[in-house]
Design a protein around this nucleic acid. Sequence first.
DNA 1: TTAATTAATTTTGTATACAATATTTTTTAC
DNA 2: GTAAAAAATATTGTATACAAAATTAATTAA
Lengths: 251, 251
Amino acid sequence: MSRTAPTVALKQSETPTRKGLHNGQIYEEMFAAILEQRLAPGTKLSEDTLGEIFGVSRTVIRAVLQRLAHERIVQIHPNRGAFVSEPSPAEAHEVLQARRLIEAGIVREAIRKQMPSDMETLRQSVAAERESLEQGDHESWVRLSGNFHLKLAAIAKNRTLVAYVKELVSRTSLIIVQYQKGNVSPCSCDEHTQIIKAIEARDEEKAVELMMAHLKACEDQLNLQNDEEKADLFSIFAKPGGRADKKRRAV
Amino acid sequence: MSRTAPTVALKQSETPTRKGLHNGQIYEEMFAAILEQRLAPGTKLSEDTLGEIFGVSRTVIRAVLQRLAHERIVQIHPNRGAFVSEPSPAEAHEVLQARRLIEAGIVREAIRKQMPSDMETLRQSVAAERESLEQGDHESWVRLSGNFHLKLAAIAKNRTLVAYVKELVSRTSLIIVQYQKGNVSPCSCDEHTQIIKAIEARDEEKAVELMMAHLKACEDQLNLQNDEEKADLFSIFAKPGGRADKKRRAV
DNA sequence: TTAATTAATTTTGTATACAATATTTTTTAC
DNA sequence: GTAAAAAATATTGTATACAAAATTAATTAA
């Protein structure tokens, strides 16, 4: 944690002040900036700086930061400021588990409420995914991949559930940025396609199974074992006795 | 909607100012006041008045109201102010549907992760419910009944899911206040007891079935058909032609 | 030079002031 | 007396000012 947080750099091309931006617009811009990785996890979000950038006072920036904090994309440390969230491995597991639970239910609901146009929308979404993957545009792929899950959630026609899925997908993006090991496996598009097919076939058990496996695979592609980061440092450098040596100063 | 919103009356015994309250404490007090029906749905939450009551400036009241708004317990109309939410029938259905989806999943997870102490906690929760029901304390019953679902969610050991269930339970309380027809059926405690038994027996399908039926019964006890309130007024008073008459002024 | 302490600066938390919008009351016309 | 228009009032939205806390820089001692 000793690395210094990078300063906020929302848009390099930005003129110092851009007046007239409303609360919601500023939220959208910051939300996009975080998910598109222009603002990396851990970045400090200074109220003054952001106020200058958007040409508004700290008052309105504060409201936006609180909204982002409620959505878990930003973390507020009292008296210290707001930072782009750095989800812990435990939190990452929690988010993926919540997604399996909720999206399994959404798949069931989608099977009941599906319309042909919904399925067409989903197929187009996967097509866009595949294109971004072929072009090697990793950033677009993360966004479009999440988009598929949002479109699927929308079929359930439940604004509350859509809001929850949106939140979970956003958090997943932050998690991927932090913990994805190597390149993403290109089979993800195919998994989405298979889910669509199972929904169309109204095969509930199979569709649920595919969705759970898909999200589990997503989690398995992450590096989530470094909860003991500091302990590892000790085990790497320490003499026999390991982290217990931490307390002993002499020797 | 022509009925005037009642003014805020948080605690009759309250002295005009009570200094030193922190952000989170004010949130807790307002949250409790709304769920305990001391603040009825539709009540206007004036920033000045609340600031006076809690002995803080509008700045901090504003933050609390925004937090409550994000949790859907309060609704903010731009330039008009904050009001205790009055969920529409459509929203009520949405909330109960989301609960069925999420709590069905929670039941499955609880079956996997249950510990003996968890089950004991649940049984105690139901005991408290039954007591409040026997004493005819309806307000306590609403709170304790929601509490059972929260305790159940906690077994899944997932803070995100607990937060979602907490939000949904709160919204359900507001919904019950608005739409519950007659007295609550006293079988609700028994339904909770049955769910506990099914979880202990690790009978996943039965436990899920019971939870879904329980929440469906809860929804069925509500009066949710008055989405056409205004239209009804017209059909009640109007001459043949019904609501189409609305536009015509003469005659 | 390093470590600890102190001072200076920066940044957040809260109150207040003013502008913009709603609401209420009063006035005016029919 | 009722309805519309205008003025007055009250309330929200935003900017700014000041206090409290944290961070950074400077100073001092070992």
